[in-house]
Design a protein around this nucleic acid. Structure first.
Lengths: 138, 138
DNA sequence: TGGAAAACTGAAAATCTTTCGCATCTTGTC
DNA sequence: GACAAGATGCGAAAGATTTTCAGTTTTCCA
């Protein structure tokens, strides 16, 4: 359970960390902003400050438990790291997010980086558009 | 020259706009943050406020003269729009930026969006890594 | 198990980037 | 040249995230 993951990340096992990890695992939403997590905590009557939410999420990121994404919305969103890298399709109207993985694109990226003699550390591909539900509505 | 572009964008031709567009065209840097542009203006003893820089860049963006990018640095960077869409390779150490265009990736993106019934509006692909110069140094 | 060191926490204050409000000044037009 | 619409500059404000600080909790080992 959560305690193990936190311990293995080299962090002390504290109430805020357990709660936050639990929310990420069970909230039903893959992508949450710090604010979302904070609101969820409030709705569970937890006494955890927003600063702690940011601190904990940043530590989780450093430990590889979660990934931080910076879509164009001004806020960062966090998602549990399930080991597999993937890219995103984001609806610019309702904010819906679909994850996808495309080996062809990954391969091309590697080739392009190699052509420019870059050593890849990470990458981010986000396609913005209208999801099926939002195309009719205007 | 600049005046024409500004006029064609449907904006009044004013000193701040001419200066800012000139800086984007002649600063030698393809990618500049609002702050970069502002500093450049200051170094030229121009009396232009930072708020105006943001306003003008936003208008230029709306007019299609420049593109705004949101790399993971917390700041937006602006680049002159040369008509052709392209993606970026960013050095996480020195900040160097290389632009590239890969038709295969573009095609795959369209296909993926179609598979998910998304209507693409825009997309952003950024590969982060170490440029040739920064790989030796640590 | 006891207790100290190290790490953690909440709340408020501080930062940073970007935008807004508004009085004042310019531009484009007649 | 006079006017209305549109721009500008400045300071204040906003929104997201980080830092500070003093008090609390965990961990770890005797």
């Amino acid at each position: 359970m959560e305690n193990e993951q936190i311990k293995q990340a080299g962090l002390k096992v504290t109430a805020p960390r357990i709660k936050i990890l639990g929310i990420l695992e069970r909230s039903g939403k893959r992508h949450m902003s710090a604010e979302d997590v904070y609101k969820e905590l409030l709705s569970q009557d937890e006494e955890i400050g927003l600063a702690t939410v940011y601190r904990v999420l940043t530590q989780f990121e450093g430990a590889g438990l979660v990934c931080r994404r910076h879509f164009e919305s001004g806020q960062s969103v966090f998602e549990l790291n399930n080991g597999e890298h993937h890219d995103h399709l984001v609806c610019i109207k309702c904010g819906a997010i679909v994850e996808f993985l495309d080996p062809t694109i990954e391969t091309r990226q590697k080739r392009i980086a190699a052509e420019h003699h870059f050593k890849i550390e990470d990458h981010s591909l986000v396609v913005y558009g209208l999801c099926p539900n939002c195309q009719g509505t205007r």
